[in-house]
Design a protein around this nucleic acid. Sequence first.
DNA 1: AATGAATGAGAATTCATTCAT
DNA 2: TATGAATGAATTCTCATTCAT
Lengths: 219, 219, 219, 219
Amino acid sequence: MTVATEPAVTPERRRAPRGSARQSIVAAATELFARRGYEATSVQEIVAAAEVTKGALYHWFGSKSELLTSIYRELLAEQTRQLAEIAAGDGPVRERLHAAALDVVEHTAEHLAELTVWARSAHLLDDEHAEATRRERRRYHDLFRDLVREAQVAGVVRADVSATVVTHTFLSALGNVHTWFHPDGPLTFTEVGHQLVGLFVDGVRAPAESAPAGDPARG
Amino acid sequence: MTVATEPAVTPERRRAPRGSARQSIVAAATELFARRGYEATSVQEIVAAAEVTKGALYHWFGSKSELLTSIYRELLAEQTRQLAEIAAGDGPVRERLHAAALDVVEHTAEHLAELTVWARSAHLLDDEHAEATRRERRRYHDLFRDLVREAQVAGVVRADVSATVVTHTFLSALGNVHTWFHPDGPLTFTEVGHQLVGLFVDGVRAPAESAPAGDPARG
Amino acid sequence: MTVATEPAVTPERRRAPRGSARQSIVAAATELFARRGYEATSVQEIVAAAEVTKGALYHWFGSKSELLTSIYRELLAEQTRQLAEIAAGDGPVRERLHAAALDVVEHTAEHLAELTVWARSAHLLDDEHAEATRRERRRYHDLFRDLVREAQVAGVVRADVSATVVTHTFLSALGNVHTWFHPDGPLTFTEVGHQLVGLFVDGVRAPAESAPAGDPARG
Amino acid sequence: MTVATEPAVTPERRRAPRGSARQSIVAAATELFARRGYEATSVQEIVAAAEVTKGALYHWFGSKSELLTSIYRELLAEQTRQLAEIAAGDGPVRERLHAAALDVVEHTAEHLAELTVWARSAHLLDDEHAEATRRERRRYHDLFRDLVREAQVAGVVRADVSATVVTHTFLSALGNVHTWFHPDGPLTFTEVGHQLVGLFVDGVRAPAESAPAGDPARG
DNA sequence: AATGAATGAGAATTCATTCAT
DNA sequence: TATGAATGAATTCTCATTCAT
């Protein structure tokens, strides 16, 4: 109070525009996590890339895992919003389900890197963070499963396999495209995604053969 | 124990003689990696659980990653052997493909924990180990894909989706059952696995509806 | 806010006006320092508990140590005031000394928590703060010692032990009651305090035995 | 004792003689903790002073607090051993009690620095370490208290003050000599200690005055 | 075939404090 | 009379690995 450290006029700002640190951190972390993996990326590297200090990072995020969680939750929230919108549409359920499936494909394509990181590192999180995310993830899953159920009731989707299994299968087949998809392969991610939806809907069986009784594949 | 890993003629023992430290290490590591993850398990914890010393571990394994790799390669080798045998059988391709699919399910069920570890941690390995495993993994994949191709040629599997995509989809759907399967749920793993094969073969579409022209689900 | 802390006529405000942040800070810090220790309490925790911001704390106190020092100096000032008053009384020295001793007991009982903090953390302070407090503390000590000396001269207190040792012993025995006193034990703090004064005055020797010549305990 | 840390012939030592790291660490830590305080001493400083690496320190001690605890427990064990021996002697209880008191004084004098550290920092320890030490500390206290009780029963020590209070008072008066004793003052520590035992035994009252009825100090 | 003390580099995190507003 | 984002240096601790024995 007795010390007037700074005159009224401040000639120039020291660093970046105020309040932008958080964004830089998220951007840098997303990029680094995606490229090198969560565990292999040190907090030091993140702050260096974001051009902020460690203190700033810990001002915004309580821990490295909270940072990871934050990134994922934003993604998840966006995707959930989209799915909820599609599911609440008023077209026939078959169309809504199909649109939902394609939406998952699109979203996965757009955020392949982040989702890959998540898939590999979620198990490292402490319970606190894991729990919150699990609830949100579950909400997303339930939304999709309810759509599948609606389709089963409407006779559009086979009812001899539980909606839960159908949902998990589809979502995890997509959620792991990162393990084998190569951007420089013959197909774009979206093409692959559409083939995948096709497989999911019709199965691998050649059309000619379609569903004869006593099929051994029915086990 | 029930598996005779030892062919009649073995010129020299491959590795560990009578009940040695090596086995304890592998057992302990498998269990810990599965329970806590590879990165979260320290070498110290492994040797404590295996009741051996660090020196012993480094006597048998050059590094922590070599230990992880060893565990996975043994699994992979066994699975590849079985698949090769099935693929080389002389029944109709449809049956061989189906048997192969069920075999993947069974094997996955038996080694869920180890496979989970692998799925999460493979990306952490140094190039040297990664490369060797990738080659073997690729061999397994190719074996399966060739079977799919054979089935496509025979008109048993639809040919409008690449055999590679079909293979990856099936394998990764199965490879990620660990993310959602709960042993105390209503279905056993094997039941889930069979439903999964069913889905894979016939798709989710309700039979009645089967493949009408101009289906919107066909995009 | 509901409390009118403001007497009608106050020439100038000493410090905090109406229910200000300063009081919340002192209250919160006292409580936290007492419960968790000075070093283990972060400035962040203090401001959270006081429901003010860091800036506010640093507005009122130059540093964390100044905050600690402030708390202690207020206590010390109060106690010194009381002691000075008692010492300056006009009763016989024996009575004044006894009253002083009981006053220490009462005051210690009332401020056990804060005094504990001080005893544990004073050594951490930077020289500047340490010095100021040391002088005041010394003044308090000297006041008590002078009373003891007066009592020695008057033949009320034994003269074969230095007044300084007597003073320190008594004050430090009391100053460390916190290490062993439990509020839920059989005695109240005040009862313990009185026993302590009794011990201090008469010693532990059984009265019957009192002071025979050549007592081995005198060694 | 059973371990001969020093092999007869060692061609050349890389650094210090094998296995000596632990001792260097304890020595360095004791010295630094005593001089600068526990919290103010960093692990870095300890290893620098001990000429070992951080890893070595953490090989021998699980944490900084474990190191502190170890130092104190050794001290406590030694003191307890001595006290037990004295208490179990076969002289009259008055003599044994007196010997015990002097032993505390001697031991405190010898280890003033370490005990000071402990007094100031014990409250920082995590529960695990605190608990173990508390039990041992309690054992020491009980040993002393039992001796006091025995003396009370024998009529050597006044019985109107609980043995527990007597014990605590004496032990904590001594345990806090560090707060006021200056080595360059007029008295040696041992002299002060003996005066203290004298005070403890006979009280501050001048002999002539001894215990008249209705003494106000008895309140 | 194994020991286990020691390494050394680097990890995440904390924290009192500052300062533009 | 505050605010709170940002600092930056220090802190404790971890861990895979080595190596003399």
